[in-house]
C-alpha cells in the first residue's frame, strides 16, 4: 500500500500538564479531501499546527511524506491561514503575496525571474484573479482574498494543502464557491486538509471528516460519521440530524422552549397575553 501523505501516531500535545489533543492516530492518503470538525477549543488548530510542523508533539510522531517532523515544517506542505489573521493594511499587491509561495524556488535577487512570473500568472489565471494582480490586497472581495492566498499556497506545488477555516467570515455564496474550488483542486490531485465550524457545509461538500474533541472521536464519510451519537460525543451537546431531499442536515436540538418562554412579550406593544 502506498505511503500516506500524513500520518499521526499516538500524538499528544499540551501546554503544561493538560493535553490539548491526546493520543491521536490518523492518516491521509494521496488525493484525499478531508475536513477537521469539532467545537471551539477542541484542538483543531493545534492539530493543524502539528501537521504544519509549527508545534512538536509532546508524545508520538507526525509524519509527512514519511518524514518525522519533530516541530519542523515539511517542504511538501502549503498553508492557507484564516483571513482574519492577515494584516490587510500591509503594503503588498496580490502578485507580491502570491510570489511568496515560490520562495523555496526563487534565486538570490529580490525580483522574480521570468519563470517565476509565468508560474504566478498561470496560477492567478487558474484561480480567476489575474486582473487583480497589480492591485492591493485590500481591494479584493472576500472570495478573491481567499483565492489569492490559495494561489500562494498552490504556487509552492505542495503534496498537501492545509487550510484553517477557509469558509469563515464569508457569505454563503462565496462559501459555496470556495468549497467547489477546493473540490476542483482535489480532482486535479491535490490532497487537502481543512478545518471548519460549519457541519452542514462539511456534510454536503467534504468526502471525509475527522471529528475531534481533544481525542479523535470518529472519522469517515460524513454520511456515516455524522450521526447523533458521534456528534453528541464530539460537541457534548444535544444534536439532531435529518435528511431533506437526500441532503444531510445537522442542528442543535431545540431546547423545548421558544423565545416567548424566555421573554414573554418580545415585541413591545404587541397585544399578546403572556402565557401563564
Amino acid at each position: 500500500m502506498a505511503q500516506p501523505v500524513v500520518q499521526l501516531l499516538n500524538v499528544t500535545f499540551g501546554y503544561g500538564t493538560v493535553p490539548v489533543v491526546e493520543d491521536i492516530s490518523l492518516h491521509m492518503h494521496r488525493g484525499q479531501f478531508a475536513g477537521l470538525v469539532g467545537p471551539s477549543g477542541a484542538g483543531k488548530t493545534t492539530l493543524l499546527r502539528l501537521v504544519l510542523g509549527s508545534l512538536a508533539p509532546t508524545r508520538g510522531s507526525v509524519f509527512v511524506e514519511g518524514m518525522d517532523l519533530k516541530g519542523r515544517p515539511s517542504p511538501c506542505v502549503a498553508y492557507v491561514p484564516q483571513v482574519e489573521t492577515i494584516d490587510w493594511n500591509f503594503p503588498v499587491t496580490v502578485e507580491q503575496v502570491v510570489m511568496m509561495g515560490r520562495i523555496r524556488r526563487m534565486g538570490f535577487v529580490p525580483w522574480p525571474s521570468r519563470a517565476d512570473r509565468r508560474a504566478a500568472q498561470a496560477m492567478l489565471e487558474r484561480l480567476d484573479i489575474l486582473p487583480m494582480a497589480r492591485r492591493h490586497i485590500r481591494d479584493l472581495s472576500g472570495g478573491q482574498q481567499q483565492r489569492a492566498f490559495l494561489a500562494r499556497a498552490l504556487l509552492a506545488q505542495p503534496d498537501l494543502l492545509v487550510l484553517d477555516e477557509p469558509t469563515a467570515g464569508v457569505d454563503l455564496k462565496t462559501q459555496e464557491n470556495i468549497l467547489h474550488l477546493l473540490a476542483d483542486l482535489n480532482r486535479d490531485g491535490v490532497t487537502i486538509l481543512m478545518t471548519t465550524h460549519d457541519l452542514n457545509a462539511a456534510a454536503t461538500h467534504l468526502p471525509w471528516v475527522f471529528c475531534l474533541n481533544r481525542t479523535l472521536i470518529a472519522c469517515g464519510p460524513p454520511d456515516e460519521v455524522f450521526n447523533e451519537a458521534t456528534l453528541n460525543q464530539t460537541y457534548r451537546g444535544d444534536m439532531v440530524t435529518f435528511r431533506n431531499e437526500g441532503i444531510l442536515f445537522i442542528a442543535e436540538r431545540p431546547h423545548h422552549h421558544t423565545v416567548r418562554d424566555i421573554i414573554p412579550n418580545p415585541v413591545p406593544g404587541e397585544d399578546i397575553q403572556p402565557r401563564k
Binding site: 515544517p73 523555496r104 529580490p110 509552492a156
Partner: peptide, 23 residues
C-alpha cells in the same frame, strides 16, 4: 536587504506562515 529581501518581506508580512514556507 538585497539578498534577504524576499525572506524579510515574508517574515514582516506574516511570520508564522513564513516559517511554514521554509523561511
Amino acid at each position: 536587504v538585497f539578498f534577504v529581501y524576499k525572506q524579510l518581506l515574508f517574515v514582516t508580512f506574516d511570520r508564522d506562515v513564513a516559517r511554514i514556507y521554509g523561511v
